[in-house]
Computed example of a mutant assay.
Amino acid sequence: MYITITKQTLDSNYTQSVADFVAYLEKENDDKSIDEMEHFFNQYGEEISSKEVIQEIDGNTAKLKKTEPKFYSITVNPSARELRRLQNHSEELKKYTRELMKDYAASFYRENPVSVDDIKYYAKIEHQRTFKGKDKQIQENQSYATKILALKNEIRKIEAGNSNGNIKNLKDTIKQLEKEAPHQQDGKRIVRGMPKEGSQSHIHIIMSRKDMSNTYSLSPGSKYKASETVFNGKLVKRGFDRDSFFKASEKTFDNLFQYKRNYVETYTARKTFVKNPKLYFSILSGLPTNERALAFKLLGKSGVNTSLLNIPTNQVQLALKALQRLKQGIGKAIESGSIGI
């Protein structure tokens, strides 16, 4: 499970409205019949129109400054292994979203406990992903992409009469480079924007910055997990515990769908990797045989060279070069969301 929380982008290229983001989320419905479309939903409603989403989020911004985010978004990316546990991606991910938002509400630190009924949100299930610049496949194909682009530019110059050369030979070279690129899908070089094959269902959630009554600010972007401050002479509790939310999101999924989560799929493992890579690799090596084998398999599918992990359980200190190579491989996998953590 790979979950991100993002605030509204506020600069000269973005409006104060949620309209552009809603339009972006509607892109997958293009050229689909009504029966095939995925609609917005929330805790209690189905088939909510994009017009209603825009009106409700844009109209729930009392006392917020232009420089303050009006909404936040959560993207929930289940791994391929997690998706295989589901029978009906659309319906079961909706069910999961409604339970997840209870975890989200419970992660706020306030004088009065926050419930899901305090959260104004709208969610949408998508079933496609495309390759982006951070993906390992794009990065490792980049040198080929650069050479192909240069050759195509040379062909255009020759066709325009601004250069001399053999166009046929250049086109043959391009064809060869297309075949040699290390990452292919359906016989084609993987490029940015290409849809990813396999199950790619994921969830987008838009949350208003203000509570349902348009009175209180509920910001998951708070730098505090739990703190207290004095405001207008009154003690105020504030904060959002991301650690608690991310851990609860996994537990909720596992309980709903009887999913047995491997160590490398956990938020705890990801955090350990970032803060203490040596401990991360030591824990991997010390897992029970079956769990360790599955962990290596999951990492291997993400493009990590797991041969570097085959060390004795009691050998905590890895060679520096091997450690750096592992950090690089696992780090890229985490960034691209290809490991479900």
Results as ranks from 00 to 15, higher is better:
Ala295Phe: 02
Tyr267Gln: 03
Thr289Cys: 11
Tyr263Thr: 00
Lys297Pro: 02
Asn276His: 08
Ala269Gln: 07
Phe281Tyr: 14
Thr266Gly: 08
Tyr263Cys: 00
Glu265Pro: 00
Arg270Glu: 09
Leu284Lys: 05
Ser285Cys: 10
Ala295Met: 06
Thr266Ser: 11
Ala293Glu: 10
Lys275Gln: 07
Ala293Ser: 12
Leu287Tyr: 01
Leu294Glu: 15
Glu291His: 13
Pro288Asn: 10
Arg261Lys: 13
Lys278Gln: 12
Val274Gly: 07
Asn262Leu: 12
Leu287Arg: 01
Leu294Trp: 00
Arg261Asp: 00
Ser285Leu: 03
Asn276Ser: 11
Glu291Asp: 15
Pro288Thr: 07
Pro277Phe: 09
Leu294Asp: 14
Thr272Ala: 14
Gly286His: 07
Ile283Gly: 00
Ala293Gln: 11
Val264Pro: 01
Thr268Asp: 10
Arg261Ala: 06
Asn276Lys: 09
Arg292Val: 09
Ala293Thr: 11
Pro277Met: 11
Thr272Leu: 15
Leu294Thr: 15
Lys297Leu: 03
Val274Glu: 14
Gly286Asn: 13
Glu265Asp: 08
Ala269Glu: 08
Glu291Trp: 00
Asn290Ser: 14
Pro277Thr: 12
Asn276Cys: 06
Pro288Cys: 09
Arg270Thr: 02
Phe296Ser: 02
Ala295Glu: 05
Leu284Phe: 02
Arg261Gln: 12
Ala295Asp: 03
Tyr263Trp: 14
Ser285Gly: 11
Lys275Met: 07
Leu287His: 02
Val264Gly: 01
Ser282Ile: 03
Lys275Cys: 04
Lys271Leu: 04
Val274Ile: 15
Ile283Trp: 01
Val274Met: 13
Val274Gln: 14
Asn290Trp: 12
Asn276Asp: 13
Thr268Arg: 07
Ile283Lys: 04
Phe296Asp: 04
Pro288Met: 08
Glu265Gln: 12
Pro277Cys: 10
Thr289Glu: 15
Leu294Ser: 14
Ser285Thr: 04
Arg261Pro: 04
Val264Tyr: 05
Thr268Leu: 07
Val274Asn: 11
Pro288Tyr: 10
Glu265Cys: 01
Ala293Leu: 12
Pro277Val: 09
Tyr280Val: 03
Lys278Leu: 12
Phe296Thr: 04
Thr268His: 06
Arg261Ser: 09
Pro288Leu: 10
Thr266Tyr: 06
Leu294Ile: 14
Lys271Val: 01
Lys275Gly: 06
Ile283Ala: 03
Tyr267Thr: 04
Ala293Phe: 11
Thr272Ile: 15
Thr289Leu: 14
Lys297Gln: 09
Pro288Val: 07
Lys271Cys: 01
Phe273Ile: 08
Asn290Pro: 00
Tyr267Asn: 03
Phe281Trp: 12
Phe296Pro: 04
Gly286Gln: 14
Glu265Ser: 08
Tyr263Gln: 08
Pro277Arg: 09
Thr266His: 06
Arg261Leu: 11
Asn276Val: 05
Pro277Ala: 13
Lys275Asn: 07
